[in-house]
C-alpha cells in the first residue's frame, strides 16, 4: 500500500522551483485591562497586588476582574506577602525559539503565602517566575521543591511596570 506524502529534505527544498518565503511583520499593543494595569503599577512600586473574589473569597493572583469559578466580579484589592513556596521548578537550556541558552534558566511555580490559605489547597494564588540563587543540581535533586522563597526586586528606578520588575524569587 502506497502511503501519500512526499518527505523533502531542507536542501531539496532550497533547490525547488515555486517555493515562497515570507517574513511576517505583526506588531501588537496588548491592553493590560483594568486589573492587570493596577497589578503592573503595583509591581513598579514594589508591591504584589491581588484581588479577593467578592463571592467565594478566594484570592486571585494574578488579579483579574472576575472570578472564573463563581463568575462574579472580583472585589477588593489586597497587598500580598512577597514570600512563598516553590511548588515545581525546571531548568531550561533552550531559548524561546529553541536556540541554546548560554546560561540555563531556572523557573518555577511559586505558591504565595496568602492570608487565609493553609498551603495545601489544589487552587492557590501563584506566580510563574525565575528562581535565583538556586543551582541546576538543587532542581534535579528535588531539593528546591517546597523551598521558601521571596521576591527580589529590581532597583526602583529600573522598574517599568512589568512582571520582570521582580528580578526573580530567591531562597531565604
Amino acid at each position: 500500500m502506497e502511503i501519500p506524502g512526499k518527505y523533502v529534505r531542507e536542501e531539496e527544498l532550497r533547490k525547488m522551483k515555486g517555493v515562497i518565503e515570507y517574513v511576517p511583520k505583526a506588531k501588537y499593543s496588548y491592553s493590560a485591562g483594568q486589573a492587570l494595569s493596577v497589578f503592573l503599577r503595583g509591581l513598579k512600586e514594589g508591591k504584589i497586588l491581588g484581588k479577593r473574589c467578592s463571592s467565594c473569597g478566594r484570592i486571585l493572583l494574578p488579579p483579574r476582574e472576575f472570578c472564573e469559578s463563581c463568575f462574579s466580579p472580583a472585589g477588593e484589592w489586597l497587598e500580598l506577602p512577597q514570600t512563598g513556596r516553590v511548588e515545581t521548578a525546571s531548568v531550561s537550556y533552550i531559548s524561546a525559539k529553541r536556540g541554546k541558552l548560554e546560561r540555563p534558566e531556572i523557573v518555577a511555580i511559586i505558591r504565595l503565602d496568602a492570608p487565609g490559605y493553609r498551603g495545601d489547597e489544589p487552587e492557590f494564588p501563584g506566580i510563574f517566575h525565575r528562581l535565583c540563587g538556586v543551582s541546576e543540581e538543587d532542581v534535579m535533586s528535588g531539593r528546591v521543591f517546597g523551598a521558601r522563597v521571596r521576591a527580589r526586586w529590581r532597583p526602583a528606578e529600573q522598574r517599568a511596570g512589568s512582571i520582570t520588575d521582580i528580578e526573580c524569587f530567591e531562597r531565604w
Binding site: 523533502v8 527544498l13 525547488m16 522551483k17 515555486g18 517555493v19 515562497i20 518565503e21 515570507y22 517574513v23 511576517p24 511583520k25 505583526a26 506588531k27 501588537y28 499593543s29 496588548y30 491592553s31 493590560a32 485591562g33 483594568q34 486589573a35 492587570l36 494595569s37 493596577v38 503592573l40 503599577r41 476582574e65 466580579p73 477588593e76 525559539k97 511596570g161 512589568s162
Partner: peptide, 25 residues
C-alpha cells in the same frame, strides 16, 4: 469598585512573528 484603578490603562508592546515562513509549492 469595579474600575481597575485611577489613570489610564497600561499597554504592553509585543508581536506575533516568526523569523520567516517557507511555503513549499
Amino acid at each position: 469598585n469595579r474600575r481597575g484603578g485611577r489613570g489610564e490603562l497600561l499597554h504592553v508592546e509585543g508581536s506575533m512573528e516568526a523569523d520567516k515562513y517557507v511555503y513549499p509549492p
